[in-house]
Design a protein around this nucleic acid. Structure first.
Length: 557
RNA sequence: GCGCCCGUAGCUCAGUGGAUAGAGCGCCUGACUACGAAUCAGGAGGCCUGAGGUUCAAAUCCUCACGGGCGCACCA
């Protein structure tokens, strides 16, 4: 097991020692059964092993008896201070505080790069595609959730040693662009004073947001006579609208702290005839079939519910084909892992995409599809109804403005990506203690305050002696600092950003408890210096962790 | 009907096969002439939807129910 931190070192050290102790008793080859983890609750030491329970059936010893024997044999060393057998047969390890305190040196030496590692990701390239909102209207709330999760996940993956790239797929081809063009034309006619609403076609976007696009187009093309335009201009107008909406998406996302490495256009694929090439490949592999005048991909062979049409009987392609070509291109570009964050209305999409990836010969387990759970927008008790069709909804930019970037990101990131969630706007915009993000930021602001006062005192530093850090509060902070690199690695490997908000809340809580209980600047020099170093290290980790979430850490609040 | 996601405290949600299941909010007690109370200390509040199974050990893994959501187009 690789270790990324002092926490991991302690784990590995104990595993090794236990293995040695078991061998000394004649039990060989049990190392793979040795687990060392943090206890689920206080009072059970710093680390716990269930090894005596695990190996009972090989050793023919009662778990508690074996645990007691192992504890009695244990030779204390620089890492482990005490071992106790407890409960049904657990071994509880208490670590040497002096050893733990060394983490403060490490954090101070490494600064903002503390917790980052190359050991987990080994530089493996990961492409993470998210948001990919269609350029036919503003983004909505669930796009914001995907944006926060995707961006944060990319940051976390990079911190864990992967090379993650963010990509936004722009669906700028196909029917919807023509529909958008149609909507723009109708809005242009409306601007001329014509009544278009009474005859508005069902399948054309009714949202009023198209009006501003029409107005902009009008201003840029004053010489064109609207009455001369007909359906032959849908494409032109649609392309114009798609560009506008993409620019809008870029601006809104940038304001949300999200930058993409690439905006990948469906049009690029079409121009390169990539969709046709995919059909060719599938055909040559024998996975295509013609039926009812259409051409079908036999995706059932690869675990999909049903076969999928790729070329309709009118000769045009379904949207699925460029998507398949896009995914083939992702793998062809040499990415080890391809992660898609999809909206909650895409459950049906997973099977077919996996099928086509598999059929084309790419490793299907390297395609990871995360469905981002539904977001219900609330104002207190009241559900904010949203319907994109009727054009009644809250655009993402309004949500960000109302809640604030930090709050919105935190709310999206503190929950597991796939769980449905309620976003309470009233709660998110509260600038007070009910809002959990302030709890973390306040810890940072307090530390900044203390450090400011320390600087103002102008007293010289004394030599740093971390042996002064001994209290339960201090030990807890040390242990949390030591665990931070593992939190990052775990969040990265599980694709689970929510571990970071949880961890940071715990760290902030430990700091607040410490702060209330123990003085810093009023203490004698040696103690003061040690505690200052400790809180500086806490500040580094708070800042680093919040940065991975895209959340700021203000010096004052 | 089929597939996927979700059922954990009053609410919103964590929870890595392990000991007495956690946090925030809400509710109840206490603590500031202050290194910033946006905080801290404590309390009440749970048949982890249900029933079987695997295991020394299940909220966690398996099966089947039940409840909620989302998908099941020659739309994108």
């Amino acid at each position: 097991m690789a270790s990324y931190s002092r926490f991991g070192e302690a784990q590995a050290h104990i595993v090794q020692s236990l293995d040695t102790a078991l061998r000394a008793r004649g039990f060989d080859n049990l190392k793979s059964y040795i687990e060392v983890d943090r206890p689920t609750e206080d009072g059970h030491g710093d680390l716990v092993s269930n090894v005596a329970l695990k190996v009972a059936r090989f050793t023919k010893m009662a778990p508690l008896a074996l645990a007691s024997a192992l504890a009695a044999d244990w030779n204390d060393d620089a890492v482990v201070e005490r071992v106790e057998a407890a409960g049904p047969g657990f071994l509880n390890f208490t670590l040497n505080t002096r050893w733990m305190a060394e983490v403060v040196h490490q954090v101070r030496a490494e600064g903002a790069s503390y917790g980052r590692t190359t050991a987990a990701g080994h530089g493996d390239r990961i492409l993470i595609e998210f948001v990919s909102a269609n350029p036919v209207g503003p983004m909505v709330v669930v796009n914001g959730r995907a944006a926060a999760i995707g961006d944060s996940l990319a940051r976390i993956l990079n911190a864990a040693g992967f090379t993650a790239h963010r990509e936004f797929y722009v669906n700028d081809g196909g029917n919807q662009i023509l529909k958008l063009g149609h909507a723009i034309l109708l809005r242009l006619q409306e601007l001329q004073g014509r009544d278009v609403m009474s005859t508005w076609p069902d399948d054309v976007y009714p949202g009023e947001y198209v009006i501003s696009v029409a107005t902009a187009w009008r201003a840029e093309h004053p010489d064109i006579v609207i009455d001369d335009l007909d359906e032959s201009s849908y494409e032109l107008l649609g392309d114009y609208g798609a560009k506008k909406f993409q620019q809008q998406h870029e601006a809104v996302l940038r304001g949300f702290g999200v930058e993409f490495d690439r905006w990948y256009h469906e049009r690029e694929l079409r121009q390169a005839l990539a969709p046709e090439a995919v059909i060719d490949r599938l055909d040559r592999l024998g996975f295509m079939e013609t039926k009812d005048g259409a051409r079908w991909f036999l995706s059932e062979k690869f675990g999909d519910d049903k076969n999928r049409v790729m070329v309709k009987s009118d000769g045009t392609m379904t949207y699925f084909v460029p998507d398949a070509a896009y995914h083939a291109d992702k793998f062809d570009r040499g990415y080890h892992y391809v992660i898609d964050l999809l909206g909650p209305d895409h459950h049906g999409y997973v099977g077919r995409m996996r099928a086509v990836v598999k059929a084309l010969g790419y490793p299907p387990d390297r395609l990871e599809i995360l469905i981002v759970g539904l977001v219900r927008l609330m104002r207190g008790e009241e559900l904010v109804r949203m319907s994109k069709r009727k054009g009644s909804y809250v655009p993402l930019e309004d949500l960000i403005e109302e809640a604030g970037v930090d709050q919105a990101r935190y709310f999206f990131l503190e929950r597991a990506p796939e769980t449905p969630m309620d976003f309470d706007l009233d709660l998110a915009k509260l600038r007070d203690s009910k809002n959990p993000v302030y709890y973390i930021q306040y810890a940072g602001a307090r530390i900044h305050g203390i450090l400011r006062q320390w600087r103002d005192l102008g007293e010289p530093d004394v030599e740093l002696d971390l042996a002064y850090l001994q209290s339960p509060h201090e030990r807890q902070l040390l242990w949390l600092l030591a665990r931070y690199p593992d939190v990052i690695v775990r969040a990265a490997m599980e694709r689970a950003p929510q571990h970071l908000p949880r961890y940071l809340t715990e760290l902030a809580s430990a700091f607040h408890g410490f702060y209330r209980e123990q003085r810093i600047l009023e203490e004698a020099r040696g103690v003061r210096q040690a505690r200052l170093a400790l809180i500086e290290a806490v500040l580094v980790v708070l800042g680093s962790g919040l940065d991975l979430l895209g959340i700021s850490l203000p010096e004052r609040m």
